[in-house]
Design a protein around this nucleic acid. Structure first.
Length: 169
DNA sequence: CCCTGATTCGC
DNA sequence: GCGAATCAGG
């Protein structure tokens, strides 16, 4: 499958989500198999870096030599390259949505076509199954999930970030 | 500390 | 082209 590359499809999603105001980490979580850095990098390469960006972050950056980094290249157990065929821990590690079944009112559940920017996109159940549905709760501003699922959704991203051992700062 | 996006530069 | 590491902020 995806050989870990920016297919037209993923780029399209990226653009849409980015312009939709989602943060890089959120987009990364949505797309899967990419870090927020990858998303930001791509966003820049696509030339759509600025949307409603913070004026302060647009300020000129200070050049800083990085001699100490040279070849430190920490050995990260992080999966890279083609993770499509390998058993993907990111998917497996998905905080099982089933556990949240009971907090989602049936009347609130939505099908794919019913989702919009204001509804929680949290998937529940097997996508190939008939009883698959989305949370449908009130999504946080600029987020694809409700408050509850946002918490869960971005936890893996944080782990990922912290999984990288810091050489020394 | 949590998070943001921005930038650099080895790959 | 890609994205980790790093940076400057909120």
């Amino acid at each position: 499958m995806t050989v870990m590359t920016w297919t037209d499809d993923r780029v399209e999603q990226l653009k849409k989500l980015w312009e939709g105001g989602l943060s890089a980490s959120q987009i990364a979580a949505e797309l899967g198999n990419v870090t927020r850095n990858a998303v930001i990098g791509k966003v820049h390469r696509l030339g759509l870096s600025g949307r409603a960006k913070s004026p302060s972050s647009a300020a000129p950056r200070q050049r800083k030599a990085r001699p100490a980094q040279q070849m430190v290249r920490v050995a990260r157990p992080m999966a890279r390259g083609n993770t499509a065929l390998a058993h993907n821990y990111e998917i497996e590690a998905e905080p099982d949505p089933i556990a949240y079944d009971n907090i989602v009112p049936i009347s609130q559940r939505l099908s794919l076509v019913e989702l919009n920017e204001a509804t929680c996109h949290w998937p529940i159940g097997d996508p190939s199954s008939a009883d698959f549905y989305f949370c449908g709760g009130k999504a946080l501003a600029g987020a694809p999930y409700c408050a509850h699922h946002s918490r869960i959704a971005y936890q893996p991203a944080s782990d990922r970030r912290r999984a990288v051992p810091k050489p020394t700062r």
